[in-house]
Design a binder for these strands. Structure first.
Lengths: 309, 309
DNA sequence: CTGAAAGCGCTTACAG
DNA sequence: CTGAAAGCGCTTACAG
């Protein structure tokens, strides 16, 4: 009954109700902005909330209402500006809603991903946005789907039943390739990336298609797979330049790789863009080439909203 | 807590207990790896868990045990590589524990920060790691502290009672300044940054101290405050170059600003490092100048562990 | 080592 | 429009 101001005890809805002289149900309705409460009752309750410094316990609410108001976001590399921007997009989309984001970073390893997924599942998020690491099994993802709404992004899996949000990699790669061809390049490499990911396959497919349309065959030895890091790009380009018949340009798996390629070129005394064509992929810097980064990202919270309900 | 229409009821600890033929307490003990359970009882319970596909509900556990196993991480700009790396560090530190990170991005605005803090508080995290935005009030932070353990990072507030983790900005700036002085620069600008943040004040303090030690007075007009973005750095340097008596070098608030300064210099036909000295701050690229980025970051989860208990 | 009972802080029918 | 009661899925004393 008496609000204990001296003790550090947590203020609960019960105490707010007592303080405002109403029932718990009424306080609960006020908290959720129900129109069922009379204006002065509402004002009274809100005054008590403020005075007591009450903080809503969403965990308790979740237990009862069966939804947690959190969504999980699992990326492969948050230090990649592409994912960082994407995270901002998701986070921004959540801003309007009452959702909070749980973040996970897999470093593109299955072990870390399994750990993270397990941990996140225990928080019962209403939805999970996942960029699956190389080697993610369909079985694992299907198991996940039994618990929570799942949306894959950037990379997808061979199961059309799973929601996927991402850029049109095939078309993007086609346009990038066309750009290099227009600049007179004929011997073009594809640098970096995880060869087993859908993103890599789609980008290479677009690359190949555009080359063939220009009457050029793709030299498979110029598909230089490597880690999605600057170092991956750097070593890929240095290896390519050491060949008998080196390429004159490179379409890179993404902008991080492209940056590595540029560093490698400079190390080899070449000037990127001048005596060697380089093009990235991700919209970090080359946004104008295809759909703007945030278009994809902006889609996701909305998409999630649909899926999660 | 998926409102899954097709699949049956969620598996609870109760059902595991029934399936394994033991009491709920026993299952609870198994879940928490208590040594009090007999080995074969444990094995039996674990078999049931696996067979039924039981997923622990940490929310329910939190409600009872009064701690949520989550920690909140609020940064000012996740697209800044410094914060992205820091996030990876925190996330990596959490890996061993059973904690999950709640992420928030304030874009360095108080409005967004207030919203995020409020939302996070409702999840009752065991601790919050906050890089306070420009203009954060002590009152707000103290209120937050009444609910949860709080650790500030990168920027601190004028209250020594609040835990703070961060680099030694004064010393870092001193060393950077010494570096520029050693290269013969005498007229040095300090570019970018939020002038009301502790990080800015400390860095400028180190800069000023080192200049004075070299017998040089700091021209206050060369403290070019601006937004912590590339654009902020770019416009700052362009403005500085247009002056009567322009500087020959700039110590930048951080690496993002430094990058903008370099872009601005190039736009003005200057070559950074050659005919204009530029030095950044953050350990993104200049890690060797002071403590490595991850040293600070690695400290945090451990530190948090102490504070949170 | 295992079990029965109480309760964490909310929401949800259901009455009035 | 407001109140009394039940219960979400766990953990925590407390017995045995």
């Amino acid at each position: 009954m008496t609000p204990d101001t001296s003790s550090p005890k947590t203020i609960t809805l019960n105490q707010v109700a007592a303080d405002a002289g109403v029932s718990r149900s009424t306080v609960s309705l006020v908290l959720r902005n129900s129109p069922l409460v009379a204006d002065d009752t509402r004002a009274q309750v809100q005054a008590s909330i403020k005075r007591l410094g009450y903080v809503y316990n969403r965990g308790a609410a979740s237990l009862r209402s069966q939804h947690s108001n959190t969504i999980g976001l699992i990326v492969t590399d948050i230090t990649n500006p592409f994912f960082a921007e994407l995270t901002v997009g998701v986070e921004g989309g959540l801003e309007e809603s009452r959702y909070t984001a749980l973040l996970g970073n897999t470093s593109d390893t299955i072990q870390k991903q399994s750990l993270l997924l397990e941990r996140m599942q225990e928080h019962w998020p209403d939805g999970i946005l996942l960029c699956p690491t190389d080697g993610t099994s369909l079985a694992q993802v299907r198991r996940l789907q039994r618990q929570t709404a799942l949306v894959l992004f950037v990379r997808y899996l061979p199961d059309l039943e799973i929601d996927y949000v991402g850029a049109d990699n095939v078309r993007g790669a086609e346009q990038a390739t066309a750009h290099l061809l227009a600049h007179g390049h004929r011997r073009i490499a594809f640098a970096g990336g995880p060869a087993t990911s859908s993103a890599w396959r789609d980008r290479v497919q677009g690359f190949t298609a555009q080359m063939q349309q220009a009457g050029l065959a793709v030299d498979e030895s110029l598909l230089a797979v490597g880690s999605v890091t600057r170092e991956g790009g750097r070593s890929a380009i240095l290896e390519l330049l050491g060949r008998e018949n080196p390429p004159t340009a490179a379409l890179c798996y993404n902008d991080v790789v492209a940056f590595g390629v540029m560093l490698g070129l400079q190390a080899a005394g070449r000037t990127p863009g001048k005596d060697f064509g380089v093009i990235g992929f991700d919209d970090i810097t080359e946004a104008e080439l295809w759909r703007p980064t945030l278009t994809t990202v902006a889609l996701q919270p909305r998409h999630l909203g649909e899926v999660a309900t």
